[in-house]
Amino acid sequence: MTFTPRDWRAHPPVIAPGYKSTRLRGATKPLIPIRQSLSELTGPVFGHDCLGPLDNDLTKNGRKEGEPLGERILVAGKVVDEAGRPQPNMLVEIWQANAAGRYVHKTDRHDAPLDPNFFGGGRCVSDDEGFYRFYSVKPGAYPWGNHENAWRPNHIHFSLFGPSIATRLVTQMYFPGDPLLALDPIFLATPEPARDRLVCAFDLSLTEADFALGYRFDIVLRGTLATPMEDKR
């Protein structure tokens, strides 16, 4: 068994000139192919035992004196591989700005208010069918220094391992209908046919009456290939 290759028709290149920081930080030489050995077929195992009781509820895990401000949301979806097979017990780490577009990170200098009741970091683990879910508030847009009047679209950062280090994925989930998507060099660095995979869908069936808007975001990790040569050993 090996993992399917990273599909470079889906992932952004390491140098995308419109996103200025890539120019000095992306590798310039071609990646060197590697035959997947036990080193690539394994990875850290994190399951439900690493979760704290409020880790999957960002509307609660930063509360000090009341509820965080903003539009309450539920984000849920299924983690699968390329063959559609559910990926159970997968850790999903998340972090995001608050409703005003400000990160709690010490070096975020954006002149928007911190919310004393919102932290913005959390995690959840997919269930036996690969479903994950967490509550939060919709993150705000914020300016950044890439170019004149540059603004990041609303987004939530995701980090997943999957079954091995080969399936590692760090990505960002965007929201439907955001006019900033068409202007964002990070989103636009993604090959065009794959961009819509980064945009969640509003989902009335996930929406909880009188409580939170529901958004669906499915995540597809690299799949597996049978390797007949090795199976014969």
Partner: peptide, 10 residues
């Protein structure tokens, strides 16, 4: 076959 979810910067 489903397409891989693209990577984005950390």
């Amino acid at each position: 076959s489903k397409g891989q979810t693209p990577s984005q910067t950390v």
